[in-house]
Amino acid sequence: MNIFRFAGDMTHLISILVLLLKIYATKSCSGISLKTQELYALVFLTRYLDLFTDFISVYNTIMKLVFIASSLAVVCCMRMHRVVRRSYDKDLDTFRHYFLILASFVLALLVNEKFTFQEIFWAFSIYLEALAILPQLVLLQRSGNVDNLTGQYVFFLGAYRAFYILNWIYRYFTEQHFSRWIACVSGLVQTVLYADFFYYYFISWKNNAKMQLPA
């Protein structure tokens, strides 16, 4: 464990807490893409298949449980909660995310570390995570204005993978046999996808203005 990875995990945790705060505090999920939340639940469920077979550390196990539980909680809340679900931007959240699932699965069958059930689903979860934010970014683009908590949610979500890139660089230079090309390349793509969002987020922060994405 290194400081970059720990910072990344904590930033990821913060992003989830900000999302839960937004939904419970405002009793609204406007501006949040249910499709992105469903993709994230799928990412965690397929990545942590080794939850009960490979024990890495208490920290690792607890964080896996937190990520799985929180992502499922958000999806259930957005689908079931009678107040929250009314504020879901159903007609704006129309990204065809099934294509992202299909593309990630096909790529995982072709590019993986080992052609085993667990490794294919691990690679699938890595590729899907890189693409999972797309419905959310499209939704924000369409809705134009980004409320503070949603903006902070997406910002922390993007920042966490940027910390992981620093973690991979650090591990590459400090560990002999470190080669996580699948995670590195996918994490790079993931962070780049946030680039334009980061740009407009920074502009709005600098001008101390409400964040506007060009329609």
Binding site: H12, K64, E113, W122, S179, R180
Partner: peptide
């Protein structure tokens, strides 16, 4: 790339 036995990252 050599196969990691298990993925220690989240």
């Amino acid at each position: 790339s050599d196969n990691e036995e298990s993925h220690d990252e989240l």
